[in-house]
């Protein structure tokens, strides 16, 4: 028996909007730790890892570890039917091939349940080792989204370089080149508006921009985003989900042939 009640149902709606274009089908894993997902995009270049910790749910019942295969496009369609202020409850019986999403309006005057078929998904689970990153950049998520969108109108790839001067995003295309440098800026009114750069070693990596633009669909989940970079390692683009956990996107770099 599985029963997860999330008072801030809009979080789950936002999570689905953030991942549905990157991944078609995925297994959601439910354990005492929380509700999680790990999945690769169809070209196996990017990986998404989601964790919503059990403590973040108002009610969390998961009698045994369970993995539920879902089509994320279909799940997003169902969650779009929930209001932004609705409480969302996920329910599944042991051995069942369906999951139920229950939506309750805040005043309890409207209660809806949507039942969705589960699917068997044979997915590869990857172990992600702890890594020491050469550089970690925290910046406003809206600023990062703006940079990715702007650069993708010029080129297809971005070079991210971190030096003591700041973090530089560069691209080139048929019409020309673009460089955007963000300097560390901690003298702002609100902490979420700061750009903070922790650098152990300078690092420069090249990535396909279209994946970054996909990751920025998670912008409504967090005011800030963290980029963790190391030479020859996938970049980690992390959006923290307040009080609950995170959504992390890993993107493999382009490497020398």
């Amino acid at each position: 028996m599985l029963e997860l009640r999330l008072v801030q149902g809009s979080l789950l709606k936002k999570v689905l909007e953030a991942v549905k274009d990157l991944v078609n089908d995925a297994n959601f894993d439910c354990s005492a730790t929380g509700f999680s997902l790990q999945a690769m995009d169809s070209s196996h270049v990017a990986l998404v890892a989601l964790l919503l910790r059990s403590e973040g749910f108002e009610h969390y019942r998961c009698d045994r570890n369970i993995s539920m295969g879902m089509n994320l496009g279909n799940m997003a369609k169902m969650l779009k039917c929930a209001g932004n202020d609705d409480i969302i409850t996920l329910k599944a019986d042991d051995g069942s091939d369906v999951v139920t999403f229950m939506f309750e309006s805040p005043t309890q005057d409207k209660i809806a349940d949507f039942e969705m078929k589960l699917m068997d998904i044979d997915s590869e689970h990857l172990g992600i080792p702890e890594a020491e990153y050469h550089a970690i950049v925290r910046m406003p998520s809206s600023e990062f989204a703006r940079i990715c969108k702007d650069l993708s109108s010029i080129g297809d790839t971005v070079v991210i370089s971190v030096t003591k001067e700041g973090v530089k995003f560069s691209t080139r295309g048929d019409i020309g080149t673009a460089n955007i440098v963000c300097r560390q800026n901690t003298t702002v009114d609100k902490p979420e508006e700061a750009t903070v750069i922790e650098m152990n070693e300078p690092v420069s990596l090249t990535f396909a921009l279209r994946y970054f633009n996909s990751f920025t669909k998670a912008t409504p989940l967090s005011n800030t985003v963290t980029l963790s970079l190391s030479s020859e390692l996938p970049v980690v683009v992390e959006y923290k989900i307040a009080e609950m956990g995170y959504i992390r996107f890993y993107l493999a770099p382009k490497i020398e042939d």
Binding site: M40, L47, L126, G127, P234, A252, K254
Partner: peptide, 14 residues
Amino acid sequence: LKSQARIARFFRSS
């Protein structure tokens, strides 16, 4: 020239 690496190059199957 750079080519696109896949994620499994860095993380092992668990």
